[in-house]
Design a protein around this nucleic acid. Structure first.
Lengths: 226, 226
DNA sequence: GTTGACATGTGTACAGCGTAAACCTACGCT
DNA sequence: AGCGTAGGTTTACGCTGTACACATGTCAAC
């Protein structure tokens, strides 16, 4: 306590600062040193309240997951699940680093487990079998968090128009299908509506689960048909 | 050339060593220093053949992606796509680090673009519209690589039987749906068949795309119905 | 009122990372 | 013969997480 005039550190303030830092500069920017700077404190001071960087990220993620509003009741399992996932999406969207955080966690925290539990409960309440819930959770995989990795970051096109036309031409020869999609699809390229794409894929999955449910699908049935 | 008796370094040998290292100890273990050790060379020597760590990982990933067998022709778009994704899965399975590598790439390399192109070409050949191909690619997102992140690493149960029963009991109170699924679902828990889960979800998506295709779905139609 | 324990912040230090810059040396070409 | 260059080495810088020893302010117990 070299400077007596300042609030003592506590876990909440640390997580606050870490989240703010990550919001601005990404998860990688959350280093113990920078965090110390932000809190006007030695890096090592943080260790008195948090066991290490990993646990800190756990805490950050916990805060975001805890901010996901609780499930609405009264809807069908399908609407309920859809709503829950999109709600999670909204909550995680303002924290782009949450993706990276989730994907690097090795164990689900209580908060995370609670979210997963609520998602499954929604399906169980709708009468889905344990097997189907299990499959659905796998099918949703990361999508249940309201996001997916977009794996299509194609190289940027050159600014210069003639250079650009030239690049597109050779590109079209090598990757005809990509160019065909990019030029023909209404929402492809820069104007791609991420939310619509997400909802489309989510509905695809929910439709499928619904259908399996209506058909009385079960592992035994599937095995018998095979 | 301090030790004249050794093969000169080249890009291939470097990537070989890096892949071997990652196969054994994971992507994080691929550091320039360890790589240098493996090749019996100074860390900086690697930089004469590769611009940096990121480019090295690109090259590693390229090698794996290039090992994905080419598309079979003659099948329906659905079977073709399914086959292609499962083939990619088989190729990437032996390199667990490939997941991490893919997800941290910021730009698709030519090899990666070629794979994506081939996937889209399969769908185009089956008569799918550009819009539907676009949606399908988004829906498949990371699954098109043959993997998904599993986001359900629940804490390990204690070994001691009585301790275990106790833990399960309190767990069941807090997370009833999780326990219900884990105890009731045939394939849940340790015996969960990852391949079957993956195929199930993949088929869900392909079914959905097929249905949209058969229904003559298009953004205009979807907008009109809304 | 003094003393000692404890919680909290500081300072220093270490091992590891990616990589920039300078250097050294042997080979191939003119 | 000489010289450019490709390919290796050496050294060094700034960054990372964090272990460990130390200082100090607060509070409990005697």
């Amino acid at each position: 306590m070299s400077t007596p005039g300042r609030r003592p550190l506590d876990r909440d303030r640390i997580v606050d600062a870490a989240v703010a830092l990550a919001d601005r500069d990404g998860l990688d920017a959350v280093t113990m040193r920078r965090l110390g700077d932000r809190l006007d404190v030695t890096p090592m001071a943080v260790y008195k309240h948090v066991t290490g960087r990993e646990e800190l990220i756990d805490a950050m993620l916990d805060r975001v997951v805890a901010s996901i509003p609780p499930a609405r009741s009264g809807a069908s399992w399908r609407d309920g699940t859809r709503d829950r996932v999109l709600t999670a999406r909204a909550a995680l969207r303002s924290h782009p680093w949450a993706r990276d955080a989730i994907e690097t966690r090795r164990l689900a925290s209580p908060t995370v487990l609670a979210y997963l539990d609520s998602l499954m409960a929604t399906m169980f309440d709708g009468g889905l079998s344990a097997d189907l819930v299990h499959h659905a959770m796998h099918a949703l995989s990361t999508r249940m968090w309201g996001f997916t990795r977009d794996v299509l970051p194609t190289p940027a096109v050159p600014a210069d128009p003639t250079e650009r036309a030239r690049a597109m031409a050779t590109f079209a020869v090598t990757y005809p299908a990509i160019v065909r999609m990019a030029t023909a699809a209404q929402h492809a390229g820069a104007g791609c509506d991420e939310d619509a794409e997400f909802a489309f894929a989510l509905d695809l999955l929910l439709d499928g689960v619904q259908r399996r449910h209506d058909d009385g699908w079960s592992p035994a049935v599937a095995a018998a048909r095979r």
